[in-house]
Design a protein around this nucleic acid. Structure first.
Lengths: 335, 335
DNA sequence: CTGAAAGCGCTTACAG
DNA sequence: CTGAAAGCGCTTACAG
């Protein structure tokens, strides 16, 4: 394929001049610029980003590290990031880790070798901070989302999990529920305990204790929501409501309940978390605590691009609000 | 960060030697290799892929062009591709096009500039072949999936859409349905007409004509399945079954039917297409024609890597089979 | 088995 | 406003 050299020869100018018209960063005499543009078109020239990146120390690439792009939550976030990245002239490398520390590490090495200009880490498994530190020592701009651990010198996008848990609790209480189960997420993420704390606080204010017996955990996937629910109703058959920590598991919960002959919401109310697109299409439509999914993605990329532009600005912490979305999976407890 | 030069200095060897131990492609005296390895570790050296790629004419990058990664079908395919790509040492650049010709074109230019070693195109909008041709002239290996148009010198992964349509038709007929609607996909893709042809053939064999009145189209998304269904039952209130060309629209169809007070499958049977993961979790669980989603992804990447290795092997066309998955959304028509 | 040298395709001071 | 030259960090013949 054509190189800058070929263009220069055809336009009878130096490669410096070609570079200038391609990048448009220095003045070029109009007639010469025309000649160059003409040659570029005739040769179908496209700059080699490998060469440009090597020389100019930029790669026009971003890394996106998420647990699993086939999970609708991450899929939606990834979409927002890809859109905005593309608009800003960046390509995004997709990295799935399944929360495995080894895969995270391997991918960070790869991204570093590719000389990405920044990386977005969503629900990063931070059992150790080594991975993050490697990024920091190389001075690669990083945005951390959904990871409420204070990392100095890193932009962070958080969602108000305490409020999320609190709202869910209050809502169920307002509907007169008293025997409330909870399916949380088994994870090392600090935002999960906060969500539980908010939930517990709401119950405590109503004089209800969140007993261990009524709490269980899942891994976030449909199946685990199904199983956790079976376990929960085995332990406490008189449950009237369950707060499930993500919509996918909530869907599993609804199906498990149905398999036991329970109706939703007549027999058991279910409230989810996330508000993935599909939650509104479930039958019954799922009442849930909405995370601002698209906003999370947009904030991630906005912060990252900002930091690439201005590496020395102080890091920001953005906390996004949650919102209760009332649909059809909860109803007032008759008791 | 450390460069090959730093490593060479510390290990007191030439950069050629460092390169050889890093790439492990030429023999190096064991004690020297040890020294180099030691220096690499001490300096936390990682090769610069920009430099390597520029020189060696490889980038370790692949492009994945899909309509929308937040659609579960593509999300699942993308996941399979990312997994296998990573395992083979490639990073994948995620490109969403929303089927826009402009975006496809823009992304292909970008991928070419990044010097990707290959690109996978799934449901590429081929209103013009220009985009594809640019890839061909640059000799970038290409795999085309879900695009049943004969492109010489291109590997293609297809699914047997004729059979898919035929099976769906036969199944509904076997259940004694006679007034069958069809929500197909508005698209320029050649596999869609084939699917319709298979469906029509099944009906024809049973002496039933697939009238235009019973056919409509959607864009593949949930909402359009919902709307298309409203339209269909307005036109023909006595419909007993609908064949919907993807599961997402089928979900929309079920909800639209319910909103009209119809029960599924008692009043109307629904059969979908794709077998995305969620279709088994719908209420009722969706009967559908399964595409081998993971296999499509795996075949794409296998073919692509194969072609990168052996550019001169004749292109292959793989046609994958579909399978009827019987679940709960269809039942025998009482008529 | 090892090293010196050329060169991949660009950008960017520098000199004019 | 333009061009010659250096150099980004590698790989790979080539010579030894």
């Amino acid at each position: 394929m054509a190189t800058i050299r070929n263009v220069a020869d055809r336009a009878e100018v130096s490669i410096s001049t070609v570079s200038r018209v391609v990048n448009g960063n220095r003045p070029v005499r109009p007639d010469i610029r025309e000649r160059v543009l003409q040659a570029i078109k005739e040769l179908d020239y496209r700059p080699n980003y490998l060469a440009r990146g090597l020389r100019a120390r930029n790669s026009s690439m971003l890394g996106l590290i998420i647990p699993d792009n086939s999970n609708p939550f991450y899929a939606e976030v990834a979409r927002a990031i890809e859109d905005a990245g593309f608009a800003a002239g960046y390509s995004v490398i997709l990295c799935n880790t399944d929360l495995s520390n080894e895969k995270q590490q391997a991918y960070i090495d790869v991204l570093l070798s590719h000389k990405v200009e920044g990386v977005i880490l969503i629900n990063m498994n931070l059992v150790t901070l080594d991975n993050l530190e490697r990024l920091m020592t190389e001075h690669v701009p990083v945005v951390l989302a959904n990871n409420d651990i204070r990392i100095p010198a890193t932009d962070q996008i958080l969602v108000d999990d305490y409020q999320g848990g609190y709202h869910a609790g209050q809502y169920l209480l307002r509907l007169n529920h008293r025997r409330i189960g909870c399916i949380s997420l088994q994870s090392q993420f600090p935002h999960i305990p906060k969500r539980i704390a908010g939930f517990r606080q709401a119950l405590t204010e109503a004089g209800i204790e969140l007993s261990d017996e009524l709490c269980t955990t899942g891994n976030g996937r449909y199946d685990s929501g199904y199983q956790a629910t079976q376990e929960l109703i085995r332990r406490q058959p008189n449950l009237t409501a369950i707060f499930v920590f993500n919509d996918l598991m909530a869907l599993g919960a609804m199906n498990a309940l149905r398999a036991e002959g329970k109706r939703i919401p007549e027999d058991v109310s279910i409230i989810g978390y996330d508000n993935i697109f599909y939650s509104s299409t479930f039958e019954p439509a799922l009442t849930t605590i909405a995370q601002p999914i698209a906003t999370i993605g947009e904030e991630c990329i906005t912060r990252l691009l900002e930091r690439i532009e201005h590496p020395d600005r102080p890091p920001m912490q953005v906390t996004l609000p949650v919102e209760l979305i009332e649909r059809a999976s909860c109803r007032a407890c008759p008791d």
